[in-house]
Each structure stands twice: as structure tokens, then as C-alpha cells.
Computed example of a mutant assay.
Amino acid sequence: MDTNKVWLVTGASKGLGLALVKQLIAQGYRVAGTSRSLGSLEKVIEKSDRFLPLEMDILNETDVRKGVEATVKAFGKIDVLVNNAGYGQLGTLEELSDKEARENFDANVFGSLNVIRQVMPLMRTQKSGHIMNVASIGGLLGAFPGWGVYCATKFAVAGFTEALAAEVSEFGIAATVVYPGYFRTNFLESGSLNLPQNSIQEYTTARALEVKHKEEIAGNQPGNPELAAEAFIALGNMQNPPVHFVMGSDAFGLAEAKINMLRTDMATHEALSKSTDY
């Protein structure tokens, strides 16, 4: 492992971001971690000369630029960026307001793009780097009633990561979209998961899935955050990292189901699909 690499991790005060930062520090890496609140970082991560806590609003480009500059000033470079900041938004497409939907896209999509824009000039100059964008298995399979907008944000993350990988390969830079399944973090708690402000009770399937996440899935997720951190570090040390990485056995099974579904639909309607050519 190359512990000389410098990592920048957004959303580092909880969840997978926190597990990753702690593991990086323990293994001797230098890492900058961001949160909207500096105090939230200082409460959960001990002071270290290998850790730079940054208060950063990823929706504010000036804030992001200052955070990137502070990281370079402290550590000289950025080798690996992990765009992890974001939150979950429950609610069917009908019941979520325009404001709720746009705010979820702002945090999960446009915030990451802000960070990428500020880090890319540095990585292009270095002619090296690796950008990991954390999506969700919900960014590969959207068939979760009441999670439509959230899944759409994560599909967007997958889409721009594919494009990014193609755009930056000529500079020796890699890009990976990570699709985690359910990990035993605080993601399903308030503060990380928003409920719809105006729910429509007729959506019984969506309501039942909300209850299932609160009462059955929360606290029983199969994924271990510590092992997820190890997987992120393994990706960061690969010479040829994948563009797509499915994280967790549950996510792997759902990804296989999506692939099979797509193959079935394509095979069933192959003749109609190909009937549209001149």
C-alpha cells in the first residue's frame, strides 16, 4: 500500500466517510475530511498530524476551493478524492415537492461536481489521481417504491462518473462509481434520511417500505463499515481501478438482478429494437 497518498473525503463526520477516514489515519495515510460542521468532525476523530478537518459546504464553490487549497497547503497534493457527502430522501415522485427534489440533487449531484471541478486542475497537473464517487445500489436499480428521487440522484452520479472516467483517462486519472448496499451506519436515521413533507397515504407500498427500513432494516444491515473502508483503500491502491464497483453481497445480488432484467427485456424485444434503423 502506498501510504504516501493523500486522500480527500467529503461527508467524513459519519457513516462510510467516517469509517474510511479513521481507517486511513490508522494505516498512516494523510487525509483531509470535510463536514458542514467542524465541531462534528472534532467530536468523532482524534487530532492527528495526518488528519486535516475541514468545514466545507459542498454547495458553495468558494468554500470548496478553499478546502482544496487548504489540503494542498497542508499535504502538498491530493491523490484520491472520495465524494461521499449526501443524504437520502424518501417520498414518491408525486408527493415530493420541487424544492425537496432539487435539494436532494444539489447535495448528491451538484455538490460532488463542485468538488470535482476544484480538484481536477490539480490532478491534471500531477497527471495522476483517482476520483471515487459514492452512489448506491439505488443508482443501478431504481425499483424501490418511495426512493425515486434519491435513486435518480445516484443514477446521475453513475452517469457522470462514466463520462468522467472517459474524459480524464488521457491525464492518467481514474474515476470509479461505488454502489454500496446496506451498511450498518446511521444512514437510515434522521439527519441522513429525510421523509416527505407531505406524504400521500394511498401509496401503501411506499409507506410499507418506509416502515420496513425503520423497523426491520435499520440496525440489521449486512454491510460492515470497517470492511467497506478496507475496500475503498484497496480501490485507491489499484493500478487499474474499475469504473464500476458494487460494494456488499446484497448490492451484488441486486446488480445481478438488474443485469438479468435488462438482458431479458432486450432479448424479448430485440426485433422491435432493431426495426427502427433505415
Rank of each mutant, 00 (worst) to 15 (best):
A257S: 04
A152Y: 05
E256N: 08
L18K: 09
P222T: 14
A101W: 07
I58G: 09
T34R: 04
D106Q: 14
L18F: 03
Y29T: 08
E100Y: 06
A166F: 05
T92D: 06
S128P: 01
R30Y: 08
A267L: 02
E46H: 14
S169R: 10
G17N: 02
E69H: 05
G191W: 06
F75Y: 03
E226D: 15
V149N: 13
M261Q: 12
V82N: 03
S48E: 09
L164K: 05
G236Y: 02
T34E: 13
K212H: 15
E100T: 02
P53I: 00
V246K: 02
T205R: 15
T62C: 03
F144L: 13
N186C: 07
I131F: 06
T268G: 06
F105K: 05
A228W: 08
V6D: 12
I137F: 09
S136Q: 12
M261R: 05
L254H: 04
L90F: 09
Y87I: 01
E94G: 00
K43I: 00
V178W: 03
E103V: 01
H213V: 12
G88T: 06
V82M: 04
A174W: 12
G253I: 07
L18N: 09
E61C: 02
F105D: 07
Q89I: 01
R207Q: 15
K258I: 03
E94W: 01
E202K: 15
K14A: 11
T92E: 10
T264C: 03
